[in-house]
Design a protein around this nucleic acid. Structure first.
Lengths: 200, 200
DNA sequence: TTACAAACCAAGCGCTTGCTTGGTATCGTT
DNA sequence: AACGATACCAAGCAAGCGCTTGGTTTGTAA
């Protein structure tokens, strides 16, 4: 586990994955990703964790609360990770590569399943909670937009920055459905290919 | 309506949108896109068309059959359209632009809702039917890959072609969640921005 | 005018869903 | 030893789900 993740657990923003609640969230992320939120029943989830379906509601008030918790915790995790990655890089080009590499890491690393749920189960939340999540994502998106804008001003890009970010959101998220880590192509190779989309 | 669409109707590959079955498919595409397949009930769909829920099953054997029909018909439509678009363009660069422009047209034109369902409700099908759809998509994907490969050989691209196609699949599909036709940016502008991702 | 198929209704069946309830086992702390 | 908090079970309820059934209306063509 990363040091950043550890401090998020201690600050209470992220649930310890060893705790009963944490195991529930992990299994829920797995099921929501593979079967989809609606097709996953509380009985499926309970069986995966090894408890009765009713016992789930000792930890969460509703099934939607579970989805919301997955999303909220994932945002905290990836934002902290992204901040560190962008700060560690220096040239505009390196910073852009760090954005891409870090997002791919979130999509294919240990947060993989939760990340997929965050992106593709969006519509399963009530509108009010969609708005909450959108607000939480803001800091993360500002990291992207600010970094891309600096790269543009230094002459590395000649495209519309918000449009580029949205293209990259789609392109990188979609990799979860076709890219398999551990094959011929490493995550670094993939990041290099993606960097070519953005920078000439 | 396009001439291509007309001939598809006459050949029986696509349902006439004026027929009861066609209206059902159109409303289903609308609901499946906005609410998602699982969250749309046969009662919702029946109410949208103005019939009783049981009457749906005079036209389709199961709810899944409706989803499958939407996807299959959409593939026929967009493949015919794409063939025509690629043939009409001549230089490698124009052909790549035609691919992008035509896919954006499918995503934001009259097939918009069905197209979104095709891309994002994939997992709602049984595995057997996922395989059927995959096979139907093959011709469409070969159009993409063949054209991109020609562009690469003529020196317009210097990336891995299958990877580029997948990045573009994600980037272009995702536009459905943020791009609104009729605003500042035209579909042609959007296509130009997307072309910059592929070609330096 | 009759015949027939396509399109639809009214009613409801069997099952699954998210969630509730009332009670119990297992802890560390006092 | 007693306590309260945490984590859980066993049973089941009310609502909603996809789909079926038997019968009726509507359009079309002989």
């Amino acid at each position: 586990m990363q040091a950043t993740t550890q401090s998020l657990i201690e600050s209470g923003q992220v649930t310890d994955p060893e705790s009963p609640r944490g195991r529930l969230l992990a299994q829920a992320a797995h099921l929501f990703k593979t079967k989809g939120y609606e097709r996953t029943t509380v009985r499926d989830l309970a069986a995966a964790v090894g408890i009765q379906s009713g016992s789930i509601f000792h930890h969460f008030r509703t099934k939607e609360d579970i989805l919301f918790a997955i999303m909220a915790e994932t945002i905290h995790t990836i934002t902290a990770r992204m901040k560190a990655a962008v700060e560690a890089a220096h040239s505009p080009r390196d910073k852009v590569r760090a954005l891409i590499r870090c997002e791919l890491e979130s999509i294919h690393g240990e947060t993989s399943e939760a990340m997929t749920v965050l992106v593709y189960e969006w519509r399963s939340l009530s509108e009010a909670r969609q708005a909450e999540i959108l607000k939480m994502r803001d800091e993360y998106e500002q990291l992207w937009l600010g970094t891309l804008e600096s790269a543009r001003q230094s002459g590395q890009l000649d495209v519309n920055v918000p449009v580029l970010r949205r293209f990259l959101t789609g392109a990188l998220s979609w990799t979860v459905f076709w890219y398999k880590p551990g094959g011929d192509m490493s995550l670094d190779d993939l990041a290099d290919q993606a960097l070519k989309l953005a920078i000439k």
